[in-house]
C-alpha cells in the first residue's frame, strides 16, 4: 500500500451538497450538476459515485466494485485517483 491509499481507504466520502448527481438521458451519461454548471462523467467515475452514500468507506467501495467488475485491472488505484481528483474539484468531502 502506498501513502495515498493508506490515508484514504478508511475515509467515508459523501457528495458535497453543492452537487447533484443524476443520469441524463439526452447525454446518455451521468452528470454532476451545480449552480449554473454541469460536468459529464465517464462510466468509471459514474460507477464509483453510484457507490458513494455517506456511509461506505473507500475500501468498502473498492470491494463493492470488485464484486461488480471482477476483471477490472488496477481498479483500486483508479478509485483512489478518482477520489483525489473529486476532492480537489470539491465534488465530495469526507464525513
Amino acid at each position: 500500500m502506498n501513502e495515498l491509499s493508506d490515508s484514504l481507504s478508511g475515509k467515508v466520502p459523501k457528495l458535497n451538497r453543492l452537487f447533484k448527481f443524476q443520469f441524463e438521458p439526452a447525454q446518455d451519461c451521468y452528470v454532476l450538476l451545480f449552480p449554473e454548471g454541469m460536468v459529464k462523467l465517464n462510466p468509471s467515475a459514474s460507477e464509483i459515485l453510484l457507490q458513494v452514500n455517506g456511509e461506505r468507506t473507500i475500501s468498502d467501495i473498492i470491494d463493492a466494485l470488485l464484486t461488480k467488475f471482477p476483471d477490472a485491472e488496477g481498479l483500486g488505484e483508479d478509485v483512489f485517483a478518482f477520489f483525489e481528483h473529486a476532492e480537489e474539484k470539491r465534488w465530495i468531502n469526507y464525513v
Binding site: E24, P25, A26, Q27, V31, L33, E36, G37, M38
Partner: peptide, 8 residues
C-alpha cells in the same frame, strides 16, 4: 424533453 438541464 429536448435535453435542457440547467434552468434559471
Amino acid at each position: 424533453a429536448m435535453g435542457a438541464v440547467q434552468l434559471g
